[in-house]
Design a protein around this nucleic acid. Structure first.
Length: 980
RNA sequence: GCGCGAGUGGCGGAAUUGGCAGACGCGCAGGAUUUAGGUUCCUGUGUCUUCGGGCGUGCGGGUUCAAGUCCCGCCUCGCGCACCA
């Protein structure tokens, strides 16, 4: 008790504070006690239908309706949380607690995505093993979050770095490795194309049913060496090793996925230059799933914005490949176009500077000198095409990414001297090399149709190339601007085929059919999506569960019995980094220096042989690709997840909340993971689905992106940040903007992130100490819609505190500590108010709008505060409804109201429908659309009677001044509008 | 440039099958309690007003008895993509 008094004095609670007021000190006492009790009683433990985590009671059954709610799991950074971090966790907790009270079996847990760079970099600096750093950080973060009172099932928490978790990550990797994508297979959901075991593929090769691909065509499977066989299979496996062009970043000492490289060719993290290199790396064949990844987006309850971002990322594009014969080249030039219907309008062709044809044309006779009639603008002022092309290609390669960005739009290029023959009319089209064509998309070559493509039009205008109209529809022709809209084909016929008069879609079909017949082209679909580079030259990640034969270099998977493959202890955790511009350097991972670990003698069924381990590790995405499955069955030592548990928590419900896809019921996180994490997870999940490991075809059925909490920061005249909490706001006079001062000095206000360096950081611990967790939770939930970003304002937190104090006071006498509720249901007016609130709050919670739910709870609380007495029925309903947002105070009040067990699983109140029907309703009486009077009327009043009443009102009489109404609109019983 | 989203009091926001604009909270003003400050409580608070009412949801048009909400055209801000053939 003495301690409480001492605290009270330091926090400004004077001697006059009533002894039983809901003060921050009391809130803290209540909160800590209930957190203890929840833990002791295992209140939030969600029973599984079978296995270790099922209910031990004989004959106990789990609820039929399950609700799996998840947060995007955090990286335990060690920098400490600020008040913005828990926003999503509170939101999922509120929803989880609400659904629990609605009788569902709610699974809510939080794990840690603990592999990654910060721990590794800390290890590099200090020599401390990243595992130690990670464990410490997780412990700190668990403590901070526990104080929030989140209803998590702690038995299901884990870190991706736990050996047991790594084991199953590696196991899934092996499943993917042992699978190939059979385009002729049917997936369990009926999709065309599915993952099948590689063993099936091998059987078809062995039996001769399937021909071997180049360069082994015509040979027998049994004649191939083990290495040759593995090389063949690498062309099929969903996870394979290949020499691939990768993004080598010398500054970081690692290669990066395309997605980790910015549009201007630098590393997303660190902003270092990135170079293209060919390296032997793991690749995941995600492109095989491109179609299904696009198609199934339609079935998901995701924000449209995220679906659009994924569709764009995959970049599915239907069109055609068309072959143009080229004089002096060994192979025809194949271009990709989405507009084969405009083939007759092609007037030149363009290849990217990196296109292989460029080299070939350099040695062709046509490159030795400019032909007659070649305009000077095509030559780049060079003596020969060879010279012009060399100079142009060199200049393009030397362009910095910034310059490339800046030049986008301005079209440059040179004529190669070569000509491509248009298969539809035999016309020889000059071939240009120009950097507006990208090697990384389609075939790196295009047919240019300036009449119907803006970029081609700009280039044609700059280089005096002909522009032809082959699709009608442009109001002013195509001389000044390309026409990309609809229309019918014109001037598009040869002796065998005519597109003239056909609309675009029809023309495409006809010309593709003709090209196919002639062997000059074929319909095709391309994607922007690339296969996923899956190796990193890092220490703190999952090792690959494979070894390489030292003699032939072939990859051999480690048997499942040997999982997990653990990381070795090393002296130095850093990859070798290089000068940021050293493009010729070679990656050297930390694991490659662990020589004892890297070379092993194993018997993998071929007798004891010497193998070399893979010294790369998996990227950070690996663990987050499947962690949701492990929440379901975290202790299972036999399988990654028991099929029965996956079905219980995630299976599709064609007519239910999980739809046709199945998956997590609710997944909440920031929009920054819109593409990468969510796309990779979907890919892995679909592979597991095809293999029968899971019954759901998508991992996350409903996705919700929460907004961010932002904050003001203040800089003084020198631009140095000053402590935001010491800044004083000075109201502007005469409507002027307010100004801000710090120590009397005028300071400038900025809006943005919260952080230590900006001196505007507010932590959850600050909030617990000053207000308690419940007040903090209510404030965060009442700030505004969950999906919007908003500004943190510490001084506004008091509003949430006052609400909880009033709630407390409606039930507990502040001076005596007695429960003051009156027995019974209370006055009709109060019962109606309660019923109305129950109905509204249920809707708001269910729609994830805690802000409006809280507003209605405050309204009811204010109503009860003003009432002469608080009936028990109202008090109990209010407490139960408040529980999702402020669980500790709700539990405490619930107990004081005489209940002995936690309200966590108590049914959420249901409104009596009879109380929702009003005795009278307020009818709005308008004249010319403006409210002039109001009437209290019977809800079942007839239109005629209401009209008569309305016309007689004082407001109407005064406004009409005796003028007769021209028209009266009656919407009984709510509204009458009189048109004068 | 293309795509998506958003503009409502001093501030955060509420209200869209079209039907009382500003719920709820902060702030502010006045009052009660207190030695005082703070806390807590009560009342008021879009704006102008001749107290009848007028005006008001980024701007300009339109549809309608009635528009924050629907339609057309702009402006501003935020986000995503960025020569994707």
């Amino acid at each position: 008790m003495t301690e409480q008094v001492a605290q009270a004095e330091t926090t400004g609670q004077g001697a006059t504070t009533p002894p039983f007021r809901y003060t921050p000190e009391l809130a803290n006492t209540i909160e800590l006690a209930w957190q203890e009790r929840w833990q002791a009683e295992g209140t939030f433990e969600a029973p599984n239908p079978v296995g270790d985590l099922s209910e031990r009671t004989e004959g106990a059954q789990v609820p039929g309706e399950s609700f799996f709610v998840m947060d995007m799991f955090p990286y335990p950074s060690g920098k400490g949380l600020h008040v913005g971090h828990p926003l999503g966790y509170i939101a999922t907790d509120v929803t989880g607690r609400f659904e629990r009270m609605r009788g569902k079996n709610v699974l809510h847990a939080l794990g840690y995505d603990a592999f990654g760079l910060p721990a590794e970099q800390y290890a590099v600096q200090t020599g401390q093993h990243p595992a130690i750093t990670t464990d410490e950080n997780i412990a700190v973060m668990r403590g901070q979050l526990r104080r929030l009172g989140l209803g998590h099932d702690d038995r299901r928490s884990f870190a991706t770095t736990d050996p047991e978790f790594v084991r199953w990550t590696q196991w899934i990797f092996l499943q993917i490795f042992h699978s190939w994508f059979d385009p002729s297979a049917t997936a369990p959901d009926g999709s065309a194309g599915a993952a099948r075991p590689v063993a099936e593929l091998v059987a078809t090769f062995a039996s001769g049913e399937r021909d071997l691909p180049e360069p082994h065509l015509g040979r027998a499977w049994s004649d191939l060496s083990p290495r040759e066989r593995e090389d063949v299979l690498a062309g099929y496996r969903l996870a394979f090793v290949a020499d691939v062009p990768v993004n080598w970043c010398p500054g970081l000492g690692t290669v990066l996925a395309n997605e980790e490289v910015t549009a201007d060719g630098r590393s997303e993290r660190g902003n270092f230059p990135v170079f293209k290199r060919n390296l032997r790396q793991w690749v995941m064949r995600i492109t095989s799933y491109a179609d299904r990844l696009v198609a199934d987006l339609d079935e998901l309850e995701w924000p449209e914005k995220v679906k659009i971002m994924q569709r764009h990322w995959i970049g599915r594009s239907e069109g055609a490949h068309v072959d143009f014969a080229v004089d002096g080249a060994s192979e025809p030039l194949t271009v990709f176009t989405t507009r084969p219907d405009t083939l007759f309008g092609a007037t030149y062709a363009v290849v990217a500077p990196e296109h292989p044809l460029v080299d070939e044309l350099l040695s062709a006779p046509t490159a030795a000198g400019w032909g007659e009639d070649v305009p000077s603008s095509w030559t780049g002022d060079a003596a020969t095409p060879a010279e012009a092309v060399r100079a142009y290609v060199a200049a393009a390669a030397a362009k910095t990414p910034e310059e490339r960005q800046a030049d986008a739009g301005a079209k440059t290029g040179v004529f190669t001297g070569g000509y491509a023959v248009n298969p539809v009319d035999g016309e020889a089209l000059p071939i240009f090399v120009a950097d507006y064509v990208l090697m990384g998309y389609g075939t790196g070559a295009i047919m240019a149709v300036p009449g119907h493509d803006q970029r081609d039009h700009a280039f044609a205008t700059a280089y005096d190339l002909p522009i032809r109209e082959v699709v009608s529809g442009a109001p002013d022709g195509v001389a000044d601007a390309a026409w990309t809209g609809d229309g019918v084909a014109v001037h598009s016929a040869n002796a065998e085929v005519s597109l003239d008069g056909l609309p675009v879609a029809e023309a495409k079909r006809v010309i593709i059919a003709w090209l196919q017949e002639k062997g000059a082209g074929r319909g095709t679909t391309t994607y922007r999506l690339r296969d996923w580079l899956f190796s990193r030259q890092r220490y703190w990640g999952e090792p690959f569960p494979v070894v390489y034969d030292v003699e032939d270099g072939r990859v051999v998977p480690v048997p499942e019995s040997m999982l997990p493959v653990a990381l070795p202890e090393v002296a130095d955790f850093s990859p070798r980094t290089f000068d940021v511009d050293d493009a010729d350097s070679d990656p050297e991972s930390p694991l490659s220096r662990a020589t004892e670990w890297a070379t092993v003698e194993l018997d993998l069924g071929e007798g004891v042989r010497t193998y070399r381990r893979d010294t790369n590790t998996m990227p950070n995405w690996a663990g987050s690709c499947w962690y949701y499955l492990r929440y379901l069955d975290p202790t299972n030592a036999d399988v990654a997840v028991a099929p029965e548990l996956e079905r219980y928590w995630m299976s599709p419900q064609p007519d239910g909340p999980r739809g046709t896809t199945g998956g997590v019921d609710l997944y909440v996180g920031g929009v920054e993971h819109a593409v990468l994490h969510l796309l990779y997870s979907r890919f892995w999940h679909k592979v597991l689905f095809d293999l029968g490991v899971v019954s759901s075809r998508e991992p996350f059925h409903k996705l919700f992106n929460q907004g961010y909490i932002q904050a003001y920061a203040y800089t003084d005249a020198r631009g140095v940040y000053v402590p935001a909490e010491e800044v004083v706001e000075v109201a502007g006079t005469g409507g002027a903007e307010p100004t801000f001062t710090w120590n009397g000095e005028s300071v400038n206000r900025e809006y943005g992130k919260m952080g230590k360096s900006l001196k505007n950081m507010v932590t959850p611990d600050d909030m617990y100490a000053s207000y308690g967790a419940d007040t903090f939770r209510v404030y965060e939930m009442s700030m505004g819609p969950l999906d919007q970003s908003r500004a943190w304002e510490t001084r506004a937190v008091v509003g949430a505190q006052r609400f909880l104090q009033r709630l407390w006071r409606t039930i507990v006498d502040e001076t005596t500590g007695e429960v003051v509720v009156a027995d019974g249901a209370g006055a009709l007016e109060t019962r109606r108010a309660v019923a109305r609130t129950v109905a509204d709050v249920t809707v708001e919670y269910a729609a994830m709008r805690p802000n409006t739910a809280i507003a209605k709870l405050i309204t009811l609380t204010n109503h009860l505060t003003a009432a002469p007495e608080v009936p028990r029925e109202a008090a109990e309903a209010l407490v139960l409804m408040t529980a999702p947002v402020a669980p500790h105070i709700a539990e405490e009040l619930w107990q004081r109201l005489g209940h002995t067990s936690s309200l966590t699983h108590h049914p959420f109140p249901v409104a009596d429908p009879e109380l929702l029907v009003e005795d009278t309703v307020t009818c709005i009486v308008q004249v010319a659309g403006k409210v002039r009077d109001r009437l209290e009327v019977d809800p079942s009043i007839e239109a005629d009677a209401l009209e008569a009443l309305a016309l007689a009102t004082e407001g109407v009489q005064r406004t009409l001044q005796g003028a007769p109404p021209r028209k009266v609109i009656v919407r009984a019983p709510r509204l009458v509008n009189i048109v004068p």
